[in-house]
Write a protein that binds this DNA or RNA. Sequence first.
DNA 1: CTGTTAGCGCCTTCAC
DNA 2: GTGAAGGCGCTAACAG
Lengths: 319, 319
Amino acid sequence: MANIHDVSKAAGVSVSTVSRVLNNHPYVKKEKAEAVKKAIIETGYIPNINAVNLKKGKTHLVGIVLPFLDVPYFSQLVQGISQAASVHQYKLVLYQTGYDEHQEKEALEMLKLKQIDSLIICSRKISLETVEHYQQYGSIVLFENGEDTPLSYTFIDHYACFMRALEYLYEHGHRKIGFSINRLDGANSSQRERAYRDFLKLKGLPFHKEYIFKKCLNIEDGERILREIAAFQERPTAILATSDQVAAGIITSSSKYALKVPHNLAVIGFDDQPIARAMQITSVNIPLYSIGQILFEQAIAEEISHKEVSTELMERSTV
Amino acid sequence: MANIHDVSKAAGVSVSTVSRVLNNHPYVKKEKAEAVKKAIIETGYIPNINAVNLKKGKTHLVGIVLPFLDVPYFSQLVQGISQAASVHQYKLVLYQTGYDEHQEKEALEMLKLKQIDSLIICSRKISLETVEHYQQYGSIVLFENGEDTPLSYTFIDHYACFMRALEYLYEHGHRKIGFSINRLDGANSSQRERAYRDFLKLKGLPFHKEYIFKKCLNIEDGERILREIAAFQERPTAILATSDQVAAGIITSSSKYALKVPHNLAVIGFDDQPIARAMQITSVNIPLYSIGQILFEQAIAEEISHKEVSTELMERSTV
DNA sequence: CTGTTAGCGCCTTCAC
DNA sequence: GTGAAGGCGCTAACAG
């Protein structure tokens, strides 16, 4: 492996000049800069990241905190993050917490110990105060509406897009609407629930506690929903699902209960995953891949920033 | 951040002694070693990985080559790898190739350029010869039966476990058995196909070309299978699915075609994912999480090794 | 057994 | 504009 010395020799300049062109410093004569660039190519020089990191006191590592990886929602997010990371020559450290606060804290500690430069928290259980405490050690970015937290974050307006979907169902004549969420706590879920209650009040519709289906994440949860519904005296005519997977579970098992989608039961999914397109599920598009990229950019940015990402209702054939 | 000097001062020894106890070298007097350990704790010393890496010429980074991350099969594998990596203080670099040979080659190049220490190839399209060529630059491990390749690999005997599943169906009276695969090429698929043909020959059963369903990976592919089957004059009575997702798709849409599982159609999934347990799908257990851990261990090991991992047929209620 | 010391490859003042 | 030189934190001869 050629090093910066080899390049300087090949270009007939000093190592500092090479270093300058490498780091785009001004004040380098054009000819010399050209010579250096040529020498870099000739020698096949690749900077030794370890040396650069040691010198600069950075690791070029960003941590990702998420509960699990084996659900499309998170793995798509990681795809986006990972793509952006490779562009910027950063590497990733995955922290799969399973929503264990202890494990979440461990990731935060890595920041303190300078094992990673920044941390992207895709979903958390640990308190915001605890997270904020660690900001002094490195940049932390959240995938949620952090409101007035001093951390960087990117978020989608779950309240608004849930409301939008509810309105859409209302326009299509639905008055008995149910919805599913995953975690009972969690910022997103509470926003959805708030939107739901506000919506009912707005339309003067009655509240049915049993129309809220909790702990829904996967296909099988969708089936569970339908099983429960089947036993209801008064069934909802539409369901806003936690994710496209849950929606798919509802739809595929609907025929088992002699329900036709959308005729007897309308379904709206979330995330607009490939499965939604394949199954023609009406879904709220959440650009997770792009969000992942944004989160990464925020993670390595100097300044803190807040970004809202917009969603879109994809009308297909399940409403 | 305290460094090795601070520790040596605090312990009243030289830096090399500190380095020695850090690296578990022999020949350090017990008292001094104790003093060093105490000093390490007192000073809150954490080794600077960049410095260690620079010195040792290693990156402590391992690359992972896989086509996509958003399918449970691969993300579970990554979970295992990631878990083992964190134990050994290694970090990951994800290369999502989408089976693009160019991208696969790029990951290999990273090895050559010393950007990563080792590479784990979970699934590939690029030729084995090309991969082998890069072995000189770092350790490469495969998740497939590499037969007599000089690379390390871990594999499961797809031929045998496919045969086992076919036998199981046969024992349950099935004579018209179909199966699905994902890629047409790919080592695993061809092994499965070979097992299938051998099985038919063994039992003196006729070969139906249309009983092989290709490009199946997800739920929706399972539905597609059933749609196709519905149009057959002579339907298979059992399906060996590519994955539990495909199996789930078959099962959930079966009622649409007035088919009862397992009465009219038996289904066996692969991987034994959570969804298989949830839906009581008979499935071939493949311990992906453990396999991920093994792959990682092989990746950082000095010697090359070959490991076979056994599978298990989980009898549930879809046969 | 233990301390001294020379780099690993790079960046960055500091002089010129 | 440019080069020389010090040092980031650590390891591993080498010399005792």
